[in-house]
């Protein structure tokens, strides 16, 4: 009897950014020119590392450093959302990593030479885990816009970088969360590499009064969907 491997659904091209995106100059020498080899999904793709807070401690409050007395400068915000797959199932106990610029639009990174102040109380790195329903939440400050050299007068819209693991390494993804109403969004080559407008807009968080805490911080909701399983399991190829 044949065995089955439950692979992951292949992405819809219009919903994903093409590797060769000329408007984003850095893709020019970095995108493969050969067609990608379609990899059948095996246990390597359908299994995933297990991350636990014991081994990977949570950093759910980016506004204070451990043992730090001071608070990060800027507009405090709460970001929360659900991590699900394309079948609508919550992705439980998943590790969510985030990193971002400070309120002035400067990364705590030696490579960032933007002439904006560093904040001694802000590192810009967070790590949280989803709960039983796929919810995650962290407290941070709203990142500032920053210039980059892609083209004349280029500025990245406010964004928070996200790194996600699912239950199969094929679900691994890195993305960015944007903010609603940002005037830089229509001008940003990275955001606009996603050709489908609805898919692009799913990267934009929403202001959420339920996540907002009175006298404390505005709340933004950002849901993320990882790939779902193929409807039909893939037959394993037996050559016997």
């Amino acid at each position: 009897m044949s065995e089955v491997v439950h692979g992951y659904r292949r992405p819809n091209e219009a919903h994903q950014p093409p590797l060769n995106s000329p408007a984003y100059g850095s893709t020019r020498a970095r995108h493969p020119q050969q067609p990608l080899l379609e990899l059948p999904h095996t246990l390597t793709e359908t299994s995933s590392p297990i991350f636990t807070p014991a081994r990977y401690p949570e950093v759910a409050d980016l506004t204070v450093l451990e043992n730090g007395a001071g608070h990060a400068m800027g507009e405090r915000i709460i970001v929360a959302g659900r991590l699900t797959d394309e079948d609508g199932r919550p992705v439980r106990h998943a590790m969510v990593e985030v990193w971002q610029a400070n309120a002035a639009g400067r990364y705590n990174h030696e490579g960032d030479q933007h002439d904006a102040p560093l904040d001694p109380n802000f590192r810009g790195m967070g790590r949280v885990f989803t709960d039983e329903d796929g919810w995650y939440r962290y407290l941070t400050i709203r990142p500032g816009a920053y210039p980059w050299r892609n083209h004349h007068n280029a500025w990245r819209p406010n964004h928070i970088h996200y790194s996600l693991f699912g239950q199969g390494f094929a679900q691994r993804m890195i993305t960015q969360m944007y903010f609603p109403g940002d005037p830089l969004l229509p001008l940003d080559p990275i955001f606009n590499t996603v050709s489908d407008e609805a898919a692009r807009n799913r990267l934009v968080s929403r202001f959420d009064l339920d996540i907002t805490r009175p006298e404390h911080a505005l709340g933004y909701r950002f849901d993320i969907v990882l790939r779902g399983r193929e409807a039909t399991p893939m037959e394993e190829n037996h050559h016997d």
Binding site: R9, P11, N12, H15, Q16, P17, Y24, S26, T84, E86, D87, G88, E97, W99, A101, Y107, N108, H109, G111, D112, R123, G124, M125, R127, H161, S163, M173, I174, T175, Q176, I190, F191, V194, A198, A199, R200, R202, L203, D223, I224, V225, L226, R227, G228
Partner: peptide, 23 residues
Amino acid sequence: ELAPSEATIASAHQTAGPYWHLV
């Protein structure tokens, strides 16, 4: 039936950028 909806399409990837070393 699970019709493709906003909630059931995988989110778009974006670049890790040059400052990912924070993680």
